[in-house]
């Protein structure tokens, strides 16, 4: 069930990238898609259990797998920085293309 929700999120994001006209909306759709991917990592990490893998006094509990979480942390940071970079680019483009419609910008800027 959760897995289906995660995939639905990814799919929604992907369709949003294609179907939305506005450039900012496209970037937000990409963010939704990456949220889905991140959630998928967390989901797979929790397959073996839900406890944080820190030494404590409880015994024999199922620990969550720390590796996917560590990996996705890197990916979150990278995704975040790329989005910041894209939004700066969009801000620059917005000066001459106030509507920010991707097709119009594309037409103006392809030879």
């Amino acid at each position: 069930m959760l897995e289906a929700c995660v995939f639905a999120t990814i799919l929604c994001g992907f369709l949003g990238i294609i179907l939305k006209q506005n450039l900012v909306m496209k970037i937000i759709s990409m963010d939704i898609m990456s949220t889905g991917v991140i959630a998928y990592y967390i989901l797979i990490a929790s397959r073996s259990g839900l406890f944080t893998p820190i030494v404590g006094n409880k015994e024999n509990v199922g620990y969550a797998d720390p590796v996917p979480q560590a990996v996705i942390l890197t990916a979150i940071v990278i995704g975040f920085s790329i989005q910041a970079l894209m939004l700066v680019g969009v801000m620059k483009l917005a000066k001459n293309n106030p509507t920010l419609e991707a097709s119009a910008i594309e037409q103006n800027n392809t030879p």
């Binding site: 990238i17 970037i27 990409m30 894209m86 680019g89 969009v90 620059k92 594309e106």
Partner: peptide
């Protein structure tokens, strides 16, 4: 150049 770069990054 910004549009081309943005498209690449996207």
């Amino acid at each position: 150049s910004i549009w081309v770069g943005l498209r690449y990054l996207f």
